[in-house]
Design a protein around this nucleic acid. Structure first.
Lengths: 170, 170
DNA sequence: TCACCTATCTATAACGC
DNA sequence: TGCGTTATAGATAGGTG
């Protein structure tokens, strides 16, 4: 419907495509409004331009939510039930992750360790030793940097704790 | 577009209205398809006739669920009910909890501690010391219980580590 | 109901500004 | 970028079989 006939295929010229989009989108919305009024129809329309910008129309007599409820009933398609399930699954997943983090945390704090076997207990010990080592090392450097020679925590070189511990061994 | 011009108002004659609906609905869907192809647009269209019969069209490149997700983001309208939002909020909450757990965990392992100030660093140190203490204590009791007197880790009474450490202080 | 017809109306492609 | 103009293609109102 214009000066020349066009094929229905992607318009390659960008400016042209954008221009045509704008015109046809307006036309589409207009037609949607018209059929709503003329024929007592209920219409919902959502259009995204290729740049992501959105236009929507929904008949005044029914809101989009109600239209979609009806859509789901009649089409059998599940829009939010599926979504709902996905969210629930995600919650379960994250909660499990959370639980295992909490347990690990408690272990590192020396809690709930009665359930650990010797091997795991040793692993926890090593982790904690290593952590303490790094913390003290960092603390030492903090103190050095500030030139605070008489702080509560003396500069302890990495590994010193283990040495201190080992001096108690037979 | 026909033998005579018509006003855009409800067509009172039922047969006429139904007929016009059928024609215009087809035209609307056709236009929706055309703009999809011509302009790379994403279009979703749902139409209910006054008798309740439904027609729908959704562009092939995005399913209706995804379109509606996008719609909600861009419009701010909430389609999924409160239940849904609650789930989303819960996910956000748990994720945040998760993040802070992970951070605490890294701190206890001596990672990412450069961001801590001295006070917090000391708190971490105490936590780790305490944890190590408990772990060793438990380990010791494990060994005692099994009668393994010559294990790699000697029985260390609670607090011994700190004593060992304190012997290095001035 | 449905399909087809066609005169007419509308949408819009290609311009210009 | 957006609005106005115009010639034309496409949609469709009303009619017929």
């Amino acid at each position: 419907m214009g000066r020349g006939k066009i094929e229905i295929k992607r318009i390659e010229n960008v400016n042209n495509r954008v221009l045509t989009f704008s015109k046809r989108r307006n036309g589409l919305v207009k037609k949607a409004k018209e059929i709503t009024v003329l024929c007592d129809a209920k219409v919902a329309l959502i259009v995204f331009a290729s740049n992501g910008k959105m236009t929507d129309y929904c008949c005044p007599s029914m809101d989009l939510g109600a239209m979609l409820d009806q859509y789901q009933k009649l089409s059998g398609n599940k829009l939010w039930d599926a979504k709902h399930e996905n969210l629930s699954n995600e919650i379960d997943k994250i909660k499990k992750e959370n639980d295992s983090l909490q347990l690990e945390l408690r272990h590192l704090k020396g809690e709930d360790i009665q359930s650990l076997n010797l091997k795991n207990l040793m692993a926890v010990e090593h982790a904690v030793e290593h952590g303490l080592d790094k913390v003290r090392d960092h603390q030492a450097r903090e103190n050095d940097g500030r030139g605070e020679s008489a702080t509560q925590f003396p500069a302890v070189v990495s590994g010193s704790l283990l040495s201190a511990n080992s001096c108690m061994r037979p």
